[in-house]
Write a protein that binds this DNA or RNA. Structure first.
Lengths: 333, 333
DNA sequence: CTGAAAGCGCTAACAA
DNA sequence: TTGTTAGCGCTTTCAG
């Protein structure tokens, strides 16, 4: 069949062990021998079999990545950060979509473990007990990216969602807004729902403002759902003069939903988004938003994972990346 | 270490061969034995080692996917189609970004082949001789998705780009436009550049219209580059009254570039995009565009690949999916 | 229906 | 510096 290490050994007139050494860059090989082997490799177009190597060495240089939905503009950018760093450290990636579905997630973890990945990078809504159990059913390191875990016993990379949301709403309050609306994701969702919602409430209470439930509308992260959510907010008699939106895509929906009703942004209503995806500059007016560095979250989490896979010392496995507000034209100057 | 097929065999009081049969669903096992084995598997929490299996069977149930950039809204949707069908057929995916860089692409093919993938799904600008050679340096099947190959000796899934572009421009001509601009990708780029450009010219000549180079502006597929491209078109004295844009993202740039100059879309200038990404409905006015079914291209190409991997008969390896125009508000009714 | 045994292609001691 | 030799955990004949 295809040429093996034995063929190369025979061609070069050495033992297979020597070929293995050359292939693996082991320095204990006489330069002359190395050359002979390299020539044989080239002549036979030898290509090492990573599967055999993986079986013998118990390292596959492959990591599993579980992501809710790669077609989401948010996660795809995160994935790019992951992949770039993985490549840098010579790892390949097995990419799996979970749709945030718990059964799928657990099934995927198992599949990845069967494939003997050297580590797992997990993105999802939440880590339950069952997740933790399955993830620990093996000794491979796991890093959580943009994912919530109450007990914090997994390494993870996030921003401070509560504080970030609070910052955005505080800014709105400081501009004098009395009624600030929020278009949130499902409150069952730890990150995009609950934590951002909590930041919203924290901001209100820290400024001594009353919370008014009628100012909250729930979307499902799609553009269209946000258009509907905004209608809901507008149908109340006491309209908000500013709206904080949990994601950029929904923020575009909010802006257009407002404009479709003849309401001007930011003159009549100011809008603030969250994420700073590429969408934020692709609307008129351009979107003021909380910057969440997706690419960096991916990159940093992959870097962290490589440290664990190499058994390097890690001082702090729970990393919180900085966030900030990017002011554009959906808020007044 | 971790439990192996031997441990299970011992626990169940059978041979490892029998365990293997049970795990692989081989029907030649007495139900009673099967139950014993299954119990042992459960008790020991046995998880088959896919790497060992791959080495022994020469099948890894893994396919390699080479994609220019997963963070692109276009490719990430394609990737989702690929992944869904792969999952359906029990394959996993190793995802690699190539940035459309020939050296990287060739390197990646080699890496994937080392990892013993059962097949390769390739997306990229173009397949050169060198690509073809590397791809054939192994007997694994290869399918091209949304990728151009002159000689057509690889199976592939595409739409008819020339015809699709031609349809869009014809429509514009039929509406009475005398001067139709185009914002194109680089003409070196076979699909997004050259083919769509050819469709544009074909439409013109089939209607007996003169080609005017000053109506063409080149972008690099980004939103911002399209804004610049539009300035260029507007700076000429004989402005176009309609613009055909090679991708949706650039079309958004064109629309906003126009609006920023106080030009109304579609009243003053009509705009037609290409792809029908989710962006198309996320602008005001919403974008009239050529529908390219990205998800389907991914799904169909993966399905095609599974057929080759299973050595099924394939009647036609070169599939051309239908396209159509979706009329929205960036063109007049 | 079940077991024994020979690999799959490579790494990693251990010797020499 | 190089070779020998066990495995890694599984699939797959081939017997029985």
């Amino acid at each position: 069949m295809s040429t093996t290490i034995y063929d190369v050994a025979a061609e070069a007139g050495v033992s297979m062990a020597t070929v293995s050494r050359v292939v693996n860059g082991n320095p204990n090989v006489k330069p002359a021998t190395r050359t002979k082997v390299l020539d044989a490799i080239q002549k036979l177009e030898y290509r090492p079999n990573a599967v055999a190597r993986g079986l013998a060495s118990k390292r596959t240089t492959t990591v599993g990545v579980i992501i809710p939905d790669i077609s989401s503009i948010f996660f795809s950018e995160l994935a790019r950060g992951i992949e770039d760093i993985a490549t840098m450290y010579k790892y390949n990636i097995i990419l799996c979509n979970s749709d945030n579905n718990k059964e799928k997630e657990i099934h995927l973890v198992n599949t990845l473990l069967e494939k003997q990945v050297d580590g797992i990078l997990f993105m999802g809504g939440e880590i339950t007990e069952e997740h933790a159990e399955q993830l620990n059913r093996s000794h491979v390191p796991v890093v959580l990216a943009a994912t919530f875990h109450e007990d914090g016993d997994f390494p993870s990379v996030n921003i401070d969602y509560v504080q970030a949301a609070k910052d955005a709403v505080m800014m709105l309050i400081d501009k004098g807004h009395e009624r600030i609306g929020m278009v949130s994701g499902s409150l069952e969702d730890p990150v995009n729902g609950y934590q951002k919602f909590r930041g919203y409430k924290d901001a209100l209470s820290s400024k001594g403002k009353e919370f008014d439930e009628s100012l909250i509308a729930i979307g499902d992260y799609t553009y269209d759902s946000a258009i509907e959510a905004v209608q809901q907010l507008l149908s109340k008699d006491n309209r908000p003069s500013a709206i904080f939106v949990a994601t950029d895509e929904m923020a575009l929906g909010v802006i257009h939903g407002l404009q479709d009703q003849g309401i001007n942004v930011p003159e009549d209503v100011e809008v603030v988004g969250f994420d700073n995806t590429r969408l934020a500059t692709m609307v008129r007016p351009t979107l003021t938003t909380v910057v969440q560095p997706m690419y960096d979250i991916g990159a940093v989490s992959m870097r962290l994972l490589t440290k664990y896979m190499n058994k390097e010392e890690v001082s702090d496995g729970v990393v919180v990346l900085p966030h900030r507000l990017e002011y554009r034209n959906s808020t007044k100057a």
